[in-house]
Amino acid sequence: MDEVILRSERLTKSFGKFIAIDNIDLKFKSGIITSIIGPNGAGKTTAINLLTGALHPDKGKVFFKDKDITSLTPDQSVKHGITRSFQIMNIFPMLTVLQNVELPLLSLLGKNLKWFYAVSRYRDVAEEAEKILRELSLWDKRNKVAGELSHGDQRALEMGMAIAPKPEMCFLDEPSSGTNPLERASILELIKRLAEEGSTTFVIIEHDMDVVFSLSDWTIVMNKGKVLAEGEPDEIRQNKEVVEIYLGEEV
């Protein structure tokens, strides 16, 4: 499975005078977990924003399975099979847990313009939502308001929303940020399981090195808007330059 599923060509994005992404070529291989690491301000989140259509680049192109998706809006890129989660929690806090996973399914199952029957009347949505919630172990809490869940449960829920549209490619932006060690372990477990079971290619932004090295098959190191190095986690661990600028204090 060495096929490249998503790649960027000479991607550049600046905010005012600050160059956030500087002429980078990224490649993501299908079927494996890739992680992107790098110090704060390295441009990791901006890179994801560019790849998923949240932002549009100043220069450069993004190809998904050799199709140019550079100028797609987020909703279009989801329809092409690319989804994501967010670094800062992004769920629907006033809706119930069940509604939170029903929403992503509506568009997938083509029900987003149905306006007369209650959501629960659509069997396919209900079944799919139940399956996802059971997978996340949130089924018992389905009628709770999402904003009142524990932090770890909210993180799991957000991941559920990212995988609900059955994406081919899913970006997770610091999926374990702000969780306690127990919650983190269960989230990692969840990612691993989803990656093994499904046909989704995951890309993870992480700060936590343990997460990166235990989870990923491939690692990309970014710094100051550029790709510093990439390789298998073990190679990266030994890369001198990487150790200097980033891992130094931790490894």
Partner: peptide, 10 residues
């Protein structure tokens, strides 16, 4: 609740 989230569910 969250505009960006809605656009990112397609």
């Amino acid at each position: 609740d969250s505009e960006t989230r809605v656009s990112f569910v397609g």
